[in-house]
Amino acid sequence: MITRMVPRLLKHICLRFVTNLFPAPHMPPSLTDALAEPAALTPPVPVGQRFRGRLNYDRAKCIGCRLCLRVCPANATDYIPEEKKILIHNDRCCFCAQCTEICPVKCLTMSGDCMISSYARKESVVTDTGPVQTDVKA
């Protein structure tokens, strides 16, 4: 049966393949082994200008004012009273960038890092990423 859909579908045969086969075109025999070699994986689609990824935290710059704790909707930031610094639980972060906005010394910035899924909860805690050179400005 010729319907309006047929020419549409024929047109789609000539179109470019749009899906990014991430992280691999086919399921590898062992996913754990494949993930251990990031170079062999298909890179993700580049993120946009205003993308908000994992938080960068410049520990030396932090003055311990605790304003980020006040605005964080997900309670992702913890205060360490002995050191007057914070640490960020990335698994709880909802990437709203509210803490980067309120930070008076701008020691918190959003990075473009989006590959942050992990099985290890403790590894995704950010304590210090050093001074930021190229940050993705929100």
Binding site: G48, R50, F51, R52, F95, C96, A97, Q98, E101
Partner: peptide
């Protein structure tokens, strides 16, 4: 929407008294 707000859903674009971006 992603270009404007950085996210495909849950844009986080509004704030009290205006917008953020």
């Amino acid at each position: 929407l992603e270009l404007l707000t950085g996210n495909r859903v849950n844009y986080g674009v509004a704030t009290f008294g205006g917008v953020r971006w």
